[in-house]
């Protein structure tokens, strides 16, 4: 009985703690809270214990803090079973013609910004004035700014592979949305799909920073050759796993490799390689997880085979392909 009463007090104290934390809590809220603390001396006591508990949890050591965040604050997409797609294995040839890009005029002489843009289904390779080699994926945009003490590159969308000529006095930094990649003597790939960013290192090391968080909570990590770092704006941290060099750079040979990636991300990247874009009609399909290879010259047949592995329906129209949830379709 006493226990149950104590539990109620703890719950009420927690409710008040949450209400009072709101910086906009008005005078009435504070008055009601004061009235509650005056009702019973155990009330303020319980509230003070709640404060002490929360303060302790808010100032945990870094390791415990990160472990708890990793375990609980990172939403895990539901895993679905998948099978390799035989249909995607057919081979054809994609002819690469010149991508649209803006030249290097006056570039080496001073602080100039250059923009590179590739067309749908067209990869492009070029070198920067310092000898750094760039391979730009299809439908991708890169802005390059070489200043006196910093080489800045912004990936606005799509994918790019960098083989960087290291220069200690002029760091090479790639930003993609809320992520920055700082070269420490290296070759690496950066792919940006909306606000999601994937960085895969094939040689050397890079330092990757999450630019969202200010303060001491800034998330920075170092990745070395063979590691892949994924940034999801909906997750609180960056995920690290491994990816082989052949897989990372497969796109340069017209194969897109995906490891445990949401279908929404897979489709968005395929769309950079097809003139007949694929649209996901039912948002829940975005969460299906896919692992496998897609040939950029056989996207149509890959999409056609999707219903064999996922509960979805494919509707081919003249200039686009629609994917809808098969379960929804049955209900109509």
């Amino acid at each position: 009985m006493a226990n149950q009463q104590q539990e109620e007090i703890v719950q009420t104290a927690a409710d008040w703690w949450v209400r009072l934390r709101e910086p906009n809590a008005d005078g009435d809220t504070v008055e009601q809270w004061l009235a509650w603390t005056a009702e019973d001396e155990r009330h303020l006591e319980a509230f003070e214990r709640m404060n002490a508990f929360a303060e302790r949890l808010g100032h945990l050591d870094r390791v415990s803090r990160q472990a708890l965040i990793n375990a609980f604050a990172r939403p895990v997409p539901p895993r679905r079973h998948w099978l390799p797609l035989a249909a995607a294995a057919s081979i054809a040839v994609v002819v690469l013609s010149g991508a649209v890009y803006y030249g290097w005029a006056h570039f080496a002489s001073g602080d100039t910004t250059q923009t590179y843009q590739s067309a749908v289904a067209q990869n492009r390779s070029f070198s920067l004035p310092d000898g750094t080699k760039v391979a730009l994926g299809a439908a991708s945009t890169l802005t390059v700014h070489y200043g006196r003490d910093r080489r800045s590159v912004e990936l606005r969308g799509g994918e790019a592979f960098f083989d960087v000529v290291h220069d200690n006095s002029r760091p090479f930094v790639v930003t993609a949305g809320d992520v920055s990649v700082h070269d420490i003597g290296t070759a690496f790939d950066v792919r940006r799909t909306g606000e999601r960013v994937m960085v895969a290192v094939t040689q050397g090391r890079v330092e990757i920073a999450d630019l969202r968080t200010g303060a001491s909570q800034r998330n920075t990590l170092e990745a070395t050759a063979g590691q892949r770092v994924s940034f999801d704006p909906n997750a609180s941290g960056m995920a690290v796993d491994t990816m082989a060099t052949e897989q990372v750079t497969a796109w340069r040979n017209d194969r897109l490799e995906f490891i445990d990636e949401p279908l929404g991300v897979v489709i968005a990247n395929l769309n950079r390689y097809t003139s007949k874009p694929v649209h996901i009609v039912d948002a829940d399909l975005n969460k299906l997880t896919y692992t496998g290879t897609v040939r950029t010259d056989a996207i149509d047949s890959w999409v056609g085979a999707l219903p064999e592995v996922f509960p979805l329906r494919v509707s081919k129209e003249t200039d686009q392909i629609m994917l809808s949830d098969a379960r929804h379709a049955e209900q109509h």
């Binding site: 009072l20 934390r21 910086p23 809270w33 709640m50 404060n51 303060e55 808010g58 100032h59």
Partner: peptide
């Protein structure tokens, strides 16, 4: 108590 709740310190 009110201020500790707000400031977590």
């Amino acid at each position: 108590a009110f201020l500790q709740c707000r400031l977590n310190s």
